[in-house]
Design a protein around this nucleic acid. Structure first.
Lengths: 164, 164
DNA sequence: CGGTTAGTTCGGTAATTACCGAACTAACCA
DNA sequence: TGGTTAGTTCGGTAATTACCGAACTAACCG
């Protein structure tokens, strides 16, 4: 097995995966793949990413900020060292971001229900209204389950940090 | 309140939401928004979508097939009627698709672990290896919870269908 | 103070994607 | 058998996005 090639292929696989999963530019996806492959614990610096990925400083900067914004990565600093060390966010953080999306869907659904209540005149439309309301309860259930899931991961993460 | 404008705004909101959430083209997102707003139960035909969205037949065709492929919508037919009636997929179907993504991440992670086991030589790298393994257990937990969540929704959906 | 390090912002270009109209197929019907 | 309905496929164009290099800021150091 060619080790270097295998490493490249894993980053490439991660790249494609994250590009689809999170709807992010190719370079952002490759940064995330690289951080998972090479920098889970110790982190990678800005310059290390510029070098490893052969991309420009500006692109790395833009895409690191994008990944920070959508909370897929975090960074830490070391005393007496101006560099930032980037690493992937853990699962509880990543899922927490998904919760925000559920909240934004709730806002739309509530507006849709108001709209339907103002407009439903025939029996078919009233049937549709009931359906939207059922969907709303789905979302509320989804949210509860996600909160549980996040708590679950927080516990696992805590346990893993204590074990290290 | 201007009813027509409110309807447009809701579809627009849904459009932006789904575009981000699922990484789909604007028109696909608007189709999904329209189906949720107007066709949850009774469904909407190809021609109805062409007319409502003011898009070309080719674009509607392409994007309907895209939405069918990623399992965000379904369709049904009526006896003696060649038209297809499109409606949004229910939540359990939508989440089931997310499970596929988790499976594809598992494949990458297993490759990453093999890679790490072949390459980890210093203590820092071995530490990284342990971290990836911990991440793998996270994913397995995530999968279990998702399966539970999907079952939960299936039950809710069944109940709602019986009530109608 | 001037130099260096660490990263950001801006303007332009290359690549990609989204959407269109026109021509097509496939199934049904008169 | 020819016409209509229901959608698909193809080739081109307009709009968007991704990425780059160059110039910039902001913080620290000698």
């Amino acid at each position: 097995m060619d080790i270097k090639q295998e490493r490249e292929e894993i980053i490439e696989l991660y790249g494609n995966y994250f590009e689809k999963l999170y709807n992010i530019p190719p370079l952002a996806a490759r940064i995330l793949g690289t951080l998972i492959t090479d920098g889970c614990k110790t982190g990678l610096t800005f310059d290390a990413l510029v070098e490893k990925l052969g991309a420009s400083k500006s692109s790395i900067s833009t895409n690191l900020n994008l990944l920070l914004n959508i909370e897929k990565i975090t960074f830490f600093t070391k005393a007496g060292d101006r560099k930032k060390y980037f690493k992937p966010a853990n699962l509880s953080q990543r899922l927490a971001n998904f919760l925000k999306l559920i909240d934004s869907e709730m806002i739309i659904i509530d507006r849709l229900i108001d709209y339907r209540e103002a407009t439903a005149s025939c029996s078919e439309e009233k049937c549709n209204l009931e359906n939207v309301k059922a969907y709303r309860t789905h979302i509320i259930e989804a949210k509860k389950l996600f909160i549980k899931t996040i708590d679950n991961f927080k516990q696992i993460e805590l346990k893993n940090n204590n074990n290290k």
